[in-house]
Amino acid sequence: MEIWMQELMAALLAALALPKVGLSAIFIIALVSATLLPMGSEPAVFGLVKFNPEMFWPAVLVATAGNTVGGAISWWMGLGAERLYERAAHHPPARARALQWLERFGAKACLLSWLPLVGDPLCAVAGWLRLPFWPCVFYMAIGKFGRYFVMTAALLWVFP
């Protein structure tokens, strides 16, 4: 079983090798890393841009798009989880302090979706709370674009 998993990972890495597929690999990596799976997309974006500086804007924009789509998927997963929870249990909804904070700020709280550890679950909780989908996606995109722009620019020009 362990050898099978190693072969699968090697095949996946070969298929997503940056020189072969470039921006599509960045999109997929950014999308998957925006879900609740523990993965980071910044090294892939930086690697592509480090070897191809002319790809700075396309890489940042594609990574932002992939990460935003992943955040939208997390939003829908949160909405689905809330619906299942409400069907299974007949009780008044409990509101923790963090949930009240999110409800107060609404979709604008999704600006923080770029934060490590809490950003991806934040998108799912936004869906759970039924915050409006398109405003959430808009704020997710702004936050995620800012992260990719700042981190990639800093790694390229501040810490070369």
Score class of each variant (00 low, 15 high):
S41R: 06
G22N: 06
P93W: 07
L12M: 15
V45N: 03
L18S: 06
I142N: 02
F27H: 04
P53V: 02
A34W: 03
G70L: 00
V158I: 12
T68C: 03
G66M: 04
I142T: 08
K108M: 12
L112Q: 01
V69P: 02
R97L: 11
G78T: 07
W114E: 02
G78C: 08
A94E: 14
V62G: 00
L84E: 12
V45G: 01
G119N: 04
V118D: 08
L102T: 00
S24W: 15
F159T: 08
A96V: 10
V118K: 07
L12W: 10
S24A: 12
A94Y: 12
A124M: 12
R95W: 11
G40L: 13
P92W: 12
W157L: 11
K144R: 12
R97H: 13
A44K: 01
M1W: 05
F149E: 08
S74R: 03
G106Q: 02
L99Q: 15
W128S: 00
A30V: 01
G143T: 00
P38L: 15
L112V: 08
V21H: 15
V69F: 13
W76P: 01
L131P: 00
V118I: 15
G22R: 05
T64V: 04
E86V: 07
G40S: 14
P43I: 07
L31S: 03
R104G: 04
W134R: 06
A124R: 02
F27S: 02
W134E: 07
V69I: 15
L156R: 07
F133C: 05
L111T: 01
G106K: 01
L8M: 10
N67D: 10
I28G: 05
F56E: 02
G78V: 02
K20G: 09
P58S: 06
V32R: 06
G143R: 00
G127Q: 04
L36Q: 05
P93Y: 05
P58A: 07
Y148H: 06
S33K: 06
T68E: 08
L156Y: 08
P160L: 14
L79Y: 12
P93R: 13
G119H: 01
F145Y: 09
A65S: 09
A59H: 00
L99F: 14
G119K: 00
P135C: 06
P160Y: 15
R97E: 12
V21W: 12
P116K: 08
K108F: 14
W76M: 13
A25R: 00
A63F: 01
T35L: 11
E103S: 13
L115Q: 12
L79C: 11
F138L: 11
L8I: 10
G146Y: 05
A63Y: 05
Q6N: 12
G78Y: 03
E54M: 06
V118Y: 10
E103K: 14
F46D: 04
T68R: 00
F46H: 13
A154V: 11
P19N: 03
V49T: 09
W114D: 05
